[in-house]
Write a protein that binds this DNA or RNA. Structure first.
Length: 148
RNA sequence: AAAGUAGGCCGCCUUAUCGCUGGCUCCCGGAUUUUAUUCGGGAACUGGAGGAAAGUCCGGACACCAUAGGGCAGCAUAGUGGGUAAUGCCCACCGGUCGUGAGAUCAGGACAAGUGCAACAGAAAGGAUGUACAGGUAAUGCUGUAGUGAAACCAGGUAAACUCUAUGCGGUGCAAUGCCAUGUAUACCGGCAUUUAAGGGUAGCCCGCCCGUUGUCGGAGGGUAGGCAGCUAAAAAUUUUUGGUGACAAAAAUUUCAGAUAAAUGAUAAGGAAUUUUUGAAAGAACGGGGGAGAAAUUUCCUGUUGUUUUAAGAGGAACAGAAUCCGGAUUACAGGCCUGCUUUUUUA
């Protein structure tokens, strides 16, 4: 029975201000202008089955990262499958977004795209997502330092 | 008991942790000098996908459009009666067809008018024209029989053939529509006056209808990207009673049950249950083989096969599928399970 242990661990997480696992609507990527800009000038990182498109937000009014998720309709015809995969990706990002929050100063717009055409489970998606985030941090932190 | 037939119901659960979203209460911070309002954040409590939410096939509610008028055309429906907000839906009855039966199924109005169609066979399929035999007449397909065919000179069949009859149908859809903020500057809208003509508009066509030029007064429009309302308390749900063969209706009591918008209702871990399957053990049953006892009936021991029950362990372990203005239906998809009525066959009494 690992329940009491997990209980203790999660309580600690909950009290720590750096390990925020919430994903409120202010951190969701919305609005046509920003999304169009993201796709026209964003850079991308691929790691099967995910692809991340990102771009820095150079606007002082936005104080959080903006994150969206997409599963193309041509790969998954049924709405149930698309919804489920989007939930899995969102969940994986929610659990691991501390990597971005604690390592990057600038605010970014992210879009995760599911590029495979068959389903993977939560653990595989998480692994892929963490890999992508580490790559992103590696790339962007050097950028930020040289610019400053 | 088996096979079948009709209908109804359910369509995973529990715990822990982390999240999303609506409501409500409270707390903290900012703005408006204060009350109060508003913005941001947090906490507690409490709602949060389906029987088909699906495809978008019918019928409505609701909203806007003035060509919402008429005629023609077009489309849909088609026994009789009833139910309903309404229907192409549902119910009852009648009739045809299929089935031993329970039941299933039906584009089930009209050949009256006009037009068309009818394979093969047959001399001939609607214009007429025959053959053989018999009868009859002044004479003749004038009469009968034979022969082909579903139908043969009298006519008939066919409308999932045009057609006719009856009934119904304006169009576009919540991206409707209204408001707010932003913001451009006469390209828009409305009223009044003036002008009376070229031209333009259209839901297939025609009739008809609408617009138009200039001035003036009034209003903020269009486009772009947002927000709020519309937006979920209703042809509502549950239970009971009454009426009705039934669809359904009425009454009473109780309840409030999703409202997201790059789109919430989830993720992880552990466990449980339905059901399937494999292996082992035990019990008793049927059938077979061998040995012993006995004159025999029979009995006992060992063993093989089959299926049943109990138990232990393992594997596997949920289908179809995600609200988007809202209802009523039908359609299609669906693992597994439960219940009820009836029919046929067999067995027992």
């Amino acid at each position: 029975m690992g329940i009491p242990k997990a209980d203790f661990f999660n309580l600690a997480v909950f009290n720590s201000p750096t390990m925020n696992e919430k994903f409120p609507s202010s951190e969701k990527l919305k609005g046509k202008i920003l999304i169009d800009r993201l796709f026209s000038e964003g850079k991308s990182i691929k790691n099967f089955p995910l692809k991340l498109v990102y771009t820095p937000i150079n606007k002082t009014s936005i104080t959080t990262n903006k994150t969206g998720v997409s599963v193309p309709k041509r790969n998954f015809k049924k709405a149930v499958d698309r919804n489920h995969l989007k939930r899995l990706i969102r969940e994986a990002f929610r659990k691991n977004k501390y990597l971005v929050d604690s390592n990057l100063q600038k605010k970014y717009a992210f879009m995760f795209i599911y590029t495979a055409n068959k389903k993977f489970d939560y653990h595989q998606i998480t692994a892929s997502l963490i890999h992508i985030l580490n790559k992103l941090i590696e790339r962007e932190s050097s950028h930020e330092n040289s610019n400053n």
